[in-house]
Write a protein that binds this DNA or RNA. Structure first.
Lengths: 341, 341
DNA sequence: TTGTATGCGTTATCAA
DNA sequence: TTGATAACGCATACAA
């Protein structure tokens, strides 16, 4: 209701608003005495400049919009954590938008962010997005955009992702080296960048070890509630000797399905995208994981975006930055004692 | 850079800005023909009112500030999900702030939210907070505040929490009924409301079954990285026959510690606050859980706050709303049953 | 029915 | 060194 303004200070001190404004901004061309007076009074009354008025004046909001498919998701909540850390350090606030894996909602939500005068956008594309014209339009309007995690080369924005290819390659190689040859690849919808990259890493590893690529072992699951189990059932008829699950959700669904069927495949289930390592440690059968550097991805993406906003990067410098992943191998030996029958 | 304004429309149509403004707001006192013209033109140019200008004018932002200890946390990210769902439906945006379990950061962050002219605040208190005067000050300034999850009766705001007492009672009763008598209670710092409530539920169950309350079985862990293991070690010297872990993080730490020591206590570990049920299903030994209605808590809290903001609740109506929890019992064989508190 | 003027809080330009 | 004024985009009281 109240909130002290520059006007209040001016009136109280018998000065003009412009003098007060200058004193507070520490302008050089001002009487030191007046300056002291104003600053003291402002501090005493706990004056805070109204950021909305500033936004209107400067036509910028010091807000960056973050668009993710889902907040309630380990990867994204950690990425947002990284984004916030950087943003707040550099004086920006973060407004979060969810696209709920829908193209329409993504477009609507991005429009919202633009209407709210976000100074820049950090976007992880929804699985439903294949048309990027709405983003190109924004770029033409010089709105800084950085893509992270789920990116696209179709628009020339900087992209920050995990090293999905490398992570998938390492995971697959690990399975091969431990004797597996029929590795089921359970993944998310096909046109998402991370799907492609992980699949490519998987294929490259097979190729390197002269293992034929069997398309029937590749399955794409959506984000529905009970989509995973029937897919696993179906895969089982092909007698795979390992599963590569491309996200934590899929990995859990996969393990859950195997467990229900009383199938244990020690050391055969490798997961990429599982960030909640502390839980993976507890699971039986053991599950090796590729840890995604969610927080770091967020940090790097936020840093790049703010550089763009503040014009520290003259040229938009597209291109992809890949943050390394970590392969964490868990063996069954150390866990056998706790296995239940 | 561009962003079409009312002025642009007025100029293009040879009208005054006020006429355009009125036409767009569908004022009755306006020529239908002019109105049509303006609206059509505005739609064609995809006109969006500048929310910042509106905020400045109306002294409100249609933003609600959410302050949580941590975003990257299952409970809070799900709660935020619920908050967003309601907020967006009712035309509000959500800005998220993290207090990182620190009183100082909580105060600073709330000031930020106020400076940003948030129309209301949704707060889950940090573990470091025991002085609420800064919140009372805001209430005196008529800023609507609703507390959720980690609440306090020290300020008369509406509070939305899980039924922590009931959930803890049910969990403890379940352990007792399955023959346990020395139930270790591993929980978060003592002065947080949920700690108190869960502890009270635990005590009440013990009392009802005439089991003496042994203070040495109660341990408070902070939020550091490796705090849990030594505590579990220490507890083990007291030979408990069950563990009650008051959050998912503690439950995982507890299981992890037990596992490292090759201790298996089937059906003895009951957890409250574990929302990631799909993972709990996979764990061995099985772990019963009290599921927190995170999303619903967020939804109810957001609804109440917006009612307050919009004056639908004349009287602030303090008091606590408790959302029921669900006890999910998992036996070593299979998932057994689901109970509601 | 439409136009003019004012104000929301701040800063920049210009004048004193 | 300080003050008056305009402007950012919008809504509204008042005038026409």
């Amino acid at each position: 209701m109240d909130a002290i303004t520059i006007k209040d200070i001016a009136r109280a001190l018998n000065l003009s608003t412009s003098t007060v404004s200058r004193a507070l901004r520490d302008s050089y061309e001002i009487n030191p005495e007046t300056k002291r007076l104003v600053i003291e009074y402002a501090e005493r009354l706990n004056y805070r400049p109204n950021p909305i008025a500033l936004s209107l004046k400067e036509n910028r909001s010091r807000v960056i919009g973050v668009v993710v498919p889902q907040i309630a998701n380990n990867f994204f909540s950690q990425a947002i954590n990284g984004i916030e850390a950087i943003a707040y350090n550099r004086g920006y606030h973060v407004i979060i938008f969810q696209s709920h894996e829908s193209y329409e909602r993504e477009v609507a939500t991005v429009q919202q962010a633009v209407a709210r005068k976000a100074d820049g956008l950090l976007i992880s594309l929804s699985s439903g997005t294949s048309d990027f014209s709405y983003l190109r339009q924004l770029q033409e309007k010089k709105l800084p955009i950085v893509l992270f995690d789920r990116v696209s080369k179709e628009i020339d924005s900087p992209c920050i992702t995990a090293d999905n290819f490398g992570g998938a390659f390492a995971a697959t190689e690990h399975l091969i080296q431990s004797g597996r040859r029929r590795i089921a690849h359970l993944t998310i919808p096909p046109h998402i960048s991370i799907t492609q990259e992980r699949l490519a890493g998987y294929r490259a590893a097979l190729e390197q070890y002269d293992i034929p690529y069997d398309e029937s072992l590749i399955r794409y699951a959506g984000f529905g509630h009970n989509e995973v189990e029937p897919i696993v059932d179906d895969l089982l008829t092909l007698s795979p000797d390992a599963f590569f699950a491309a996200s934590d959700r899929l990995a859990i669904g996969c393990l859950s399905a195997l467990k229900k069927r009383n199938i244990s495949i020690p050391e055969s289930v490798s997961l990429i995208g599982f960030t909640n390592i502390s839980v993976a440690d507890l699971l039986a059968p053991p599950m090796s994981t590729v840890e995604q550097p969610a927080q770091e991805i967020g940090q790097v993406a936020a840093g790049r975006l703010i550089d763009l906003i503040e014009g520290k990067q003259k040229i938009p410098q597209p291109g992809t930055i890949r943050i390394p992943t970590k392969l964490i191998v868990r063996a069954s030996s150390q866990l056998e004692s706790t296995l239940l029958t």
